[in-house]
Amino acid sequence: MTVKRIAFVQELLKFMGLEGRLHLEWISSAEAQKYVDVVTKFTEKIRNMGPNPLRAINEMKKAG
């Protein structure tokens, strides 16, 4: 079920121009190293993509 929902939302986000910011990975509780690798890789990826563009938009709006 999770993989279904994520596959759909990834598609939708791509359409909105927000691709790459959602990721799904199966990691068992025994796979500590994989967890570290995936989280590190994803963090780096997001950092390289720059700040969340939505934050700017919503804050601008609040400011008026």
Partner: peptide, 9 residues
């Protein structure tokens, strides 16, 4: 092959 093995999988 194991994630908890000698080479971390």
């Amino acid at each position: 092959l194991s994630a908890t093995g000698p080479f971390g999988g």
